[in-house]
Amino acid sequence: MLQLNETDFHLPLSEFSFERRFDDRGAIRWMQANWSKSFVFSALYAALVFGGQHYMKPRPKMNLRRPLVLWSLSLALFSIIGAVRTGSYMLHILSSSGFRRSICDQSFYSGPVSKFWAYAFVLSKAPELGDTAFIVLRKQKLLFLHWYHHITVLLYSWYSYKDMVAGGGWFMTMNYAVHALMYSYYAARAGGVRVPRPFAVLITSAQIAQMAMGLTVSGLVYGWMQQGDCPSRLDNITWAALMYLSYLLLFSNFFYQTYLRRHAADAKAHKTE
C-alpha cells in the first residue's frame, strides 16, 4: 500500500460534520478487500443490458419520463455538490502549493472536505450503471461509447482508489463537474424543457477536454513518478492512459458524427431544396 503524504498546510475550508467524521482509512481498507467486486457488477450489468435488449425487442417501449426526471435530477444534485466540494479542495491546493502538488499529493483521499466525496465518487459508479436501464426499457439506441464508458470507469475507479494513486483528485473533480452539466441536461430534457443545441455541444466539448486533461495528467504522473514524489504504479498509469485515450477518440468521433457531419448534411439538404 502506498504511504499517504501528509499535507503541510492548514486547510481553511469549513467542513460539514459528516465529512469530518468520515472514516477514510476504513473506506480504503474496505476497497482493498472488495475492489474486485467491480468485475461482478460489470458482468451483471452487461448481462442485464444485452439480455434486456433481447427481452424488449418484441415489446413496446416504456414511458419512463417521470422516473427519468427524478433519476437524472438526483445524480445532477449529487454531482453538483461533489464538484463544489472537491473543486474547493483542489483550488486550495493549486493556490497554496501549485499544480504539481495538486496532481501528486495523496491528501485528496484523506483530506478534510475531499475524503468523503472521493469515496462517494467511486461508490457512485455502481448505481450510475442504472442509466442504461432507461435506454433499454425506452428502446433507444445504445451506443458502444455508453456501456463501454460505464464499465471501464467503474473498474478503474475501484482499482485506483484502493492504492490512492496520484492524479485521483483531478480525475474525480473533472468527472463530478462534467456530470453536473450532463445530468442537469438530461433532467431538463426528460422534463420536457427545450434546451438550446449549443448546451449539448458544450457538454460533449467538456467531455473531450476532460479526456485530454486525463491523458495529460497520466503522462505527468508517469514522468514525476520517476523522481519519487508522485506515488503511483506503472500498471495503473498504463490502464489510465489507455482508458483516457480510448475515451478521447470515442467522444471526438461522437462529436464529429453528431454535430459536424450532421450539420454539414443538413446544410447540404437545405441548399438542394
Rank of each mutant, 00 (worst) to 15 (best):
V201L: 09
L145W: 01
L91W: 12
Y89R: 07
L154A: 02
A76T: 05
G214H: 04
K57S: 10
S184A: 11
V153F: 00
S79A: 13
A27N: 00
V153H: 07
V153L: 01
A200T: 14
V217D: 05
L260M: 10
M90N: 07
I135G: 01
A177P: 01
Y148S: 06
A187W: 05
I28H: 02
A190M: 00
Q226C: 11
L13Q: 03
I135D: 03
E128H: 05
P198A: 10
L129V: 11
T152N: 05
T272I: 14
R66S: 10
R100V: 14
W239E: 08
S72I: 01
W170T: 04
I80N: 03
R197H: 13
A133K: 08
S97D: 14
A209L: 14
A180M: 05
V217M: 03
D24W: 14
A269N: 11
L11S: 00
A180I: 03
G130F: 09
F134T: 00
W147N: 02
N236V: 11
E15Y: 02
A76G: 06
L11Y: 07
P231I: 09
F99G: 09
V165S: 05
T216I: 12
A212S: 10
E128K: 01
Y259G: 09
L155D: 02
A269H: 13
A180W: 00
K268R: 15
M213Y: 14
S102L: 10
V178F: 05
Q226A: 15
Y183I: 01
R189W: 02
I103D: 05
C104L: 04
I103E: 06
G98T: 04
R29L: 12
A76C: 15
V122G: 00
M243C: 10
P58D: 04
A269D: 12
Y259L: 06
V178D: 01
L202A: 14
S96K: 08
R29F: 10
L245E: 05
V165F: 01
L4E: 13
L260C: 11
V113W: 03
Y186L: 06
Y185Q: 04
D163P: 02
